[in-house]
Amino acid sequence: MKKPVYLDYAATTPVDPSVAEEMIKYLTPDGIFGNPASRTHAFGWQAEAAVETARRQVASLVHADPREIVWTSGATEADNLAIKGVVAGRTGVHVVTSSIEHKAVLDTCKWLEQHGVEVTWLAPDREGRIRAGQVLEALRENTVLVSLMLVNNELGCINEIAEIGRLLREHGVLFHVDAAQAAGKMPVDVSRMPVDLMALSGHKVYGPKGVGALYVRRSPDVRIEAQIHGGGHERGMRSGTLPTHQIVGMGKAFLLAQDGLEAEMAELENLRETFMSGIEGLSGVTVNGSQDCRVPGILNLSFDGVDAESLMLGLRDLAVSSGSACASATIEPSYVLRGIGLSDEQAHRALRFSFGRFTTKEEVAFASSQIVDVVSRLRAVR
């Protein structure tokens, strides 16, 4: 069977070979396999040193202090830790988020609502962005947290996080940002944005699955309640034995992302232009989300007269998505696309194409030609 062309990098990225090579050093008997929390022998000391090196590498990509990085099992746990950790033990408080956040934020905020927390759900504009003015209008005296993503996982559009962050800093409201789709795909600087809590993912940046991190600002200290207890690891914010090999992998992946960020962004933009040039003769194609404020690697398109499920069945040689991988168990139209004003019918016609480090121009040219052929064929038999 011919291997499909992978254009679903927003769902997950393959582990970079050099990352995998580094990780294996921390698994086997002749490697550094000790428990980083074991302080009485060299096996533990070496593992702890590796974890701290990775902590510095992750912090460096987002311009944070290494002491502000808390290891988690992924961005979903980091989002939960941030949001629940701020609200825990407080009554009569108010949280602001948007209706098109990742499920890790949406479901967490819905859970808070069930437990007495007031939540304001902001509606994005047609481009899929939340504006600072909307956030300002939503603030109340009892607002303790605003949670918004930096880059939308279905649209690729970028929120004006820096402006919102400055606004919230003036009002003394904590700001949590899900940056799973942003780190390694655009410059991220937590001091300039500014934010208080930021969720990061390993597997979106050519690292392993099952590891992530939460940035927790230290100056002044942001206080959050732990959600996992049992040993007081990670300065009491997240207990559990640290998976050294995964953490080392995430650190190496973030180091590679930092070193190659500018060149990779330029290459992804070239791939996007090649793809769009290949389908320019196809009528009835709409780009969903902002065409200006976006990362280059994510492209969401609607095709008039063709539903996404039929199109994906016809595109057997392409691996693409009709929405977020975290919502793929449902046949409902994308809540993100409906959130920016698309009808159910329009949302059902949309596909997400996402390019990455190992995508080639030949693959993109092949993909665009396949799309033109299949869309044309499906329209002809309507």
Rank of each mutant, 00 (worst) to 15 (best):
residue 74 G to Q: 08
residue 373 D to Y: 04
residue 327 A to R: 14
residue 234 E to W: 04
residue 23 M to N: 09
residue 348 H to P: 00
residue 165 G to V: 02
residue 129 R to Y: 02
residue 105 V to T: 15
residue 144 V to D: 04
residue 236 G to Y: 13
residue 258 Q to C: 09
residue 239 S to G: 12
residue 179 A to W: 06
residue 236 G to M: 12
residue 293 C to Q: 13
residue 78 A to T: 02
residue 197 L to W: 01
residue 5 V to Y: 10
residue 213 A to G: 08
residue 364 V to N: 03
residue 199 A to Y: 03
residue 243 P to K: 12
residue 331 I to E: 05
residue 178 D to V: 04
residue 72 T to E: 07
residue 77 E to Y: 06
residue 353 F to M: 11
residue 335 Y to L: 09
residue 326 C to W: 15
residue 136 L to V: 00
residue 7 L to E: 08
residue 93 V to K: 09
residue 222 V to L: 01
residue 264 E to C: 07
residue 45 W to F: 15
residue 251 G to Q: 10
residue 295 V to W: 01
residue 51 V to P: 08
residue 274 T to Y: 00
residue 13 T to Q: 13
residue 321 S to A: 14
residue 39 R to K: 14
residue 55 R to V: 06
residue 244 T to F: 12
residue 268 L to Q: 15
residue 379 R to I: 11
residue 274 T to L: 13
residue 261 L to T: 10
residue 15 V to Y: 04
residue 264 E to R: 15
residue 312 M to I: 10
residue 78 A to N: 05
residue 367 A to H: 08
residue 274 T to M: 10
residue 322 S to N: 12
residue 114 Q to C: 12
residue 133 G to Y: 03
residue 129 R to K: 08
residue 269 E to V: 00
residue 262 E to R: 15
residue 19 V to W: 05
residue 119 V to I: 13
residue 294 R to H: 13
residue 355 F to L: 15
residue 55 R to K: 14
residue 42 A to C: 11
residue 47 A to V: 05
residue 163 E to H: 03
residue 220 P to E: 06
residue 30 D to Q: 08
residue 256 L to H: 08
residue 338 R to N: 12
residue 337 L to S: 02
residue 183 A to D: 00
residue 180 A to H: 04
residue 75 A to E: 11
residue 17 P to V: 07
residue 230 G to W: 13
residue 269 E to I: 01
residue 63 H to G: 03
residue 326 C to I: 09
residue 367 A to I: 03
residue 351 L to G: 03
residue 376 S to V: 06
residue 130 I to M: 05
residue 184 G to E: 00
residue 146 V to N: 01
residue 344 D to R: 14
residue 215 Y to I: 05
residue 192 R to V: 00
residue 174 L to W: 01
residue 347 A to D: 08
residue 39 R to F: 14
residue 73 S to H: 11
residue 233 H to Y: 11
residue 377 R to L: 13
residue 337 L to Q: 08
residue 188 V to H: 01
residue 96 V to N: 07
residue 157 C to A: 11
residue 168 L to C: 01
residue 17 P to M: 12
residue 141 E to G: 08
residue 291 Q to G: 09
residue 170 E to S: 09
residue 100 I to D: 07
residue 265 M to Y: 05
residue 287 V to D: 02
residue 163 E to R: 10
residue 357 R to P: 11
